[in-house]
Design a protein around this nucleic acid. Structure first.
Lengths: 119, 119
DNA sequence: ACCGTAGTACGATGCTTATCGTACGAGTCG
DNA sequence: CGACTCGTACGATAAGCATCGTACTACGGT
């Protein structure tokens, strides 16, 4: 049973507070190719993107797993909107905690993608 | 004798070419607390430091393992000098490949260390 | 030649992670 | 309601990784 009368989009996901975000966890989250790709797309778009928007070469289960890793590391924020689950970069929080870090990682990823031939 | 250069004898260690260095591997190498600490000390010192200079809370075997991960990711360069194995950051190579990345990671690490009250 | 120091190699172990499949829940729309 | 879509939960599996201990090599000094 739903423990709570389903007030649409009242499903809330746990996110780490800025004070709980660890650099090591952020770096680890970004060290996976799939997750780094997701972060790049989120940064490039700048808006909320649903999980299903991403065309990852893994199953839905694995996709859920990767998004959770990103969320629990504090890299993204996830919000339910209807049946969809929207994802946004926590650019502000990360910028406050680690100024310039996200930008240089994204720049590095873009640079490597260009170097390796259209990524 | 000698003491000058040219003491890097027979034993040579494999290092990735700059073109072989992958961002994901670098981020993964830096995502371990011990390895990040090593990199911070190397950056702070700026000179060659032997493996035994670092006082890591793990055995020699594990220390060897962590230095190898850093070397194979392209983060450090290792050279034998007598019985010692010297380590130095590949700051130039990383700076060419991923401008600003290493600096912002180091800054982030310093910031987090201060925030967590490292003493 | 010997010994001590620095580091390696190898095998084992236990933990973490990436992956999948299937069954299920939550929400939308006809 | 019923069907459909999006995503979750759980269990299983396989690979990776951090760690250790012991046995070993390489080098330098005495």
């Amino acid at each position: 049973m739903t423990t709570e009368a389903a007030n649409s989009s009242t499903r809330v996901l746990p996110h780490p507070e800025p004070s709980e975000i660890r650099l090591e966890a952020v770096l680890h989250a970004l060290s996976d190719p799939l997750r780094l790709q997701v972060v790049r797309e989120l940064a490039a778009d700048g808006h909320e993107l649903s999980c299903s928007h991403f065309d990852l070469p893994v199953t839905k289960s694995t996709t859920t797993h990767h998004f959770r890793v990103l969320r629990e590391a504090g890299v993204i924020r996830q919000i339910y909107r209807g049946t969809a689950k929207m994802n946004v970069l926590r650019g502000d929080d990360l910028g406050d905690l680690f100024p310039g870090l996200l930008d240089s990682v994204l720049a590095a990823a873009a640079r490597q993608a260009a170097r390796l031939g259209t990524g």
